[in-house]
């Protein structure tokens, strides 16, 4: 990168100075962070493991779509079978409108599949580098630990978004292929056009991606605690399962509002008319809290840690 590119952003360079513990005399190109982020994201996305995770996620809507299609024996066959209303949310509407497969698939993957995939990626973010012995080389580069951690978290967030979009896109494709699409009836009973339905679907996917950020931060923190990638992934996924179990015990209702998964289902409120924001806002606040607490905890741990591998 040329000096000319860096010159207008000299201010940013200076503010970054104290954070990174290395030779302050040399001005750093701010685009370098983006370069690090870009390389981090491409490395993450190119891994075979990521492909496998995304493949499983993309398969879920296909399975749901085919199952519903077989069950109802062709479109327009009334409601969702004899026990309509059981099973995952939105399943009953799928036969009549393929767009609902997006919501059904997100509702089906949000409790387990999506967070598990995120847990694997987040848990492996730092611990995986440590266990494969590449962490010290990353730190040799003048990136600074804080910045490396931020880039790691950003790439996990990118995975949250990509994973959610993969589920939504696959569901939309399968839904449009197997079922009729058209005007959407919101769960409040009002009608919106298909275009607005698509907007709501995209919004839902975004909300789901944001719902995962708190858990991703938790996974990143766990990842800084250990040098074993497998250990960090297992611990993160274990935490997920524990929290899900706690959330389903009615006697513990006092702690439920503080569990990161408690307001996940609120993404369905996007489909009400008008949108019911109360729980969505609570969800965002809770995720924000988890992100600040666990990212700062990860920072406290990672910047003070002895890197031995």
């Amino acid at each position: 990168m040329s000096q000319a590119e860096t010159a207008p952003q000299a201010g940013t360079v200076h503010t970054r100075g104290p954070v990174d513990q290395h030779d302050p005399a040399r001005p750093r190109n701010p685009l370098w962070t983006l370069g690090l982020l870009r390389s981090e994201i491409t490395t993450m996305l190119r891994r075979h493991r990521t492909f496998a995770l995304l493949g499983v996620l993309a398969a879920v809507p296909v399975l749901i779509g085919i199952a519903v299609r077989i069950e109802t024996g062709g479109g327009g066959g009334g409601s969702g079978g004899p026990d309509g209303g059981a099973g995952p949310a939105f399943l009953a509407q799928v036969t009549n409108n393929g767009l609902f497969l997006v919501f059904a698939a997100l509702a089906a993957t949000l409790p387990v599949f999506l967070p598990m995939a995120v847990g694997v990626v987040a848990g492996d973010a730092v611990a995986g580098e440590a266990s494969s012995g590449t962490l010290r080389y990353l730190l040799v580069a003048p990136a600074g630990r804080t910045r490396l951690l931020l880039v790691k978290y950003a790439s996990v967030l990118a995975f949250c978004l990509v994973a959610t979009l993969v589920v939504a896109a696959s569901a939309l494709a399968v839904g449009a292929l197997l079922f009729p699409v058209g005007e959407v009836t919101t769960i409040s009973g009002t009608r919106i056009s298909f275009g607005e339905g698509l907007v709501r679907a995209a919004l839902t996917a975004l909300v789901v991606a944001v719902s995962l950020t708190g858990f991703a931060a938790l996974g990143l923190f766990v990842s800084t605690l250990t040098g074993s990638g497998i250990g960090a992934m297992a611990a993160t996924v274990g935490l997920l399962i524990t929290v899900q179990i706690l959330d389903s015990i009615p006697q513990l209702s006092g702690v439920h509002p503080y569990l990161f998964s408690h307001y996940w289902i609120s993404f369905a409120d996007v489909l009400r008319e008008p949108v019911h924001w109360d729980d969505l806002i609570k969800n965002f606040q809770l995720q924000g809290l988890y992100v600040t607490v666990f990212c700062s905890a990860a920072w406290a741990r990672f910047t003070a840690k002895d890197i031995t591998a």
Binding site: G75, S79, T95, N96, N97, T185, T190, R191, E273
Partner: peptide, 13 residues
Amino acid sequence: ASTFAFTPPKGAK
């Protein structure tokens, strides 16, 4: 006014 408008969704029982 749209709040009170209701047409049964296609295919609903």
